[in-house]
Amino acid sequence: MNESFINDEIQIVNIILIAIGLLLLMSFAIVLFFYFSRKKIIKTQLEKAELEIEYQKELLQNTIVTQEEERQRIAQDLHDAISSKLNVVSLNANFLTDKDITPTEANKIGESIHKVTSTVLENSRRIAHDLLPPTLDKFGLQAAVEELCEEIQETKKFTLEYHIQYQENFISSANELHLFRILQELFSNTIKHSGATNIQVALNTEENLLSLQYTDNGKGFNLAEARSAKGLGMSGIENRAILMNATCDIESSQGNGIKVSITSQPNNEN
């Protein structure tokens, strides 16, 4: 009787021992669970940070490439339209200093100088206009976009239908410039690469939402390839849209033209 009583008690002790073992196991499991979760979380965080850095690098790269291209274009423009012409002027002016020159010749040379300088003046005005259209600064986005569209129409390469209804100061002036540049880039892409015959542009500010719709019927392109091409217009357009906190939706495929839609909330500065 006494022995069985003791046996019972030993069993209780055994149960306690097993329970302690289980608790030990459980606590180890908890610690290990947290340890491995932590490792995993930190790993994903690191990957995310690396991706972000990679993206920043790409953005920087694109900016630099674009900047370089722009510099090259300006240098080319200055050389072709101004420097070479001024050379002619300099040469002609040199002739004028000649003592043996007859008045008729002097008149002729003077006329030539006048003609060339007029062209140079016109060219320099055009270059400055291309760099930053004064209309945008003086008369606002509506006028600038209309002017841009008229200029494009004058090329007579394609039909351009445009509908501009912009409420002034709907977005900040910095964002207005971004939007203008995006439109410029779209036009220049269409002219350079698409071979389109028709372009449609619609800029609206309605119900607290600005929207720019751009469509052409050109040969289109593969979106993924265009994005990966450094310094090309597409990534520039998207980056500008990001900067102005707008959503940018580009649809295009081989043979189907391009459709770009940019929407933004009013005065959404980054």
Binding site: I16, A19, I20, L23, M26, S27, V31, Y35
Partner: peptide, 14 residues
């Protein structure tokens, strides 16, 4: 902290 968790949890039963 891990050691505290393991020790306290198991020793509480003791």
């Amino acid at each position: 902290n891990s050691a505290i968790l393991i020790y306290l949890l198991s020793s509480s039963l003791i």
